[in-house]
Design a protein around this nucleic acid. Structure first.
Lengths: 201, 201
DNA sequence: TTCGGCCGATGACATTTGTCATACCGGCGG
DNA sequence: CCGCCGGTATGACAAATGTCATCGGCCGAA
């Protein structure tokens, strides 16, 4: 019997997953979480065989949860589920030692099989997303450039970014300019969009 | 037996919903769609009793599908499911004659009951989202202002917006300026964000 | 019919952004 | 130890954006 921990922030979807996987012979859902930190706590307590983590969760996302799971629940294999096929996500997941990675577009019928496969120590990567990740180029931005871009999300003016980061406005403009150039974007807003799409932000 | 049509773009989630609702006595999933237009086509053909539509779908979203369903499948009650609690969505849904409206944060156990309730001709509105919608003020933007904002999404420069919309750059700036003022935003990018959040975009 | 609102345009102007050169500091690899 | 890179800062300039006043046309409501 595979003891499964389920983490997904939308109750409705989580409940549906429970229905889908709970009906599966040989799989038992032993815990449910709506946030990454909750998942980590539960995993430490319940010691599940496999954890199914959605990336998009409040407070702590599924990727960070996966990174921490290795420490608090060794032996628990992780399968990541994501709605957005950001190429950078797969890379981070691999570095965290995740064994399974599927998009929400994946056929539902295959999910149970993937969980069993991962439980046996094998890997499963959504071929769709793997292809995107292979085409991925490394993020060309420096840490500070990323910080600045992040702070610029949502149309925040330079003056406020400078205050938030504790930098001079000129410096902020320099970073943003560098980021825009590296990403070949029209302006910082397009750069933010692009970075988000690549999973760098 | 309630004949149900399911529309949701993510296969995995759709499959999970089928598992959740298919196990429910008195409910039969007679069709599945991954896009709004597909849902409309299937509804016309299958004449389901209830259609469960996700809003976030490619090509045609769930709200537009709901509007069209009234024409091609009269008598088919619609339940809308949405991941984002945009206040404007609920209003549009109500205007389309939708009988049920739930967020993806809603407890999964209640979904079947809601579907039965709607099938009997009663309504069900997620109280969480209803509260937001009551606090909603009417969208203060004119149609053209909305067009311009929409075209501005993602950091598109004014020059390109003007070309796309077939307007002079000055006019575009006027519209954007008006929108920014009405929404009390710092700049058009923040205005886009705000309008999106309110479900106006 | 008159008024007001929306559409579209222009011109002028202030402000914000984007770009570039240049400079200093600190760490790290050769 | 030196050179390079990243972080931070300034100053100057160009380009994009935001704001405002004003104009004319059109249409629908009073």
């Amino acid at each position: 019997m595979i003891r499964l921990l389920l983490a997904e922030d939308h109750h409705l979807v989580r409940g549906a997953f429970v229905a889908l996987l709970g009906a599966e012979p040989g799989i038992e859902v032993v815990g449910e979480a709506g946030r990454g930190d909750e998942a980590v706590r539960l995993a430490a307590e319940l010691r599940p065989d496999v954890a199914l983590l959605d990336i998009d969760m409040p407070v702590m996302d599924g990727l960070e949860a996966a990174e921490r799971l290795a420490a608090v629940a060794p032996g628990c294999q992780v399968v990541i589920v994501t709605g957005h096929g950001r190429p950078g996500y797969l890379r981070r997941a691999m570095e965290a030692g995740v064994r399974g990675f599927v998009g929400k577009d994946h056929p539902a019928a295959a999910l149970a099989k993937i969980i069993r496969q991962v439980h046996e120590g094998r890997r499963y990567i959504d071929p769709e997303l793997a292809a995107d990740a292979l085409a991925l180029r490394e993020c060309p931005l420096t840490p500070r450039e990323l910080d600045t871009l992040r702070a610029a999300a949502g149309g925040v003016p330079v003056s406020r970014i400078a205050r938030v980061l504790g930098l001079s406005e000129g410096t902020v403009r320099n970073y943003l300019s560098a980021a825009v150039t590296k990403l070949a974007a029209d302006n910082r807003h397009a750069a933010v969009r692009h970075a988000k799409e690549m999973g760098w932000l």
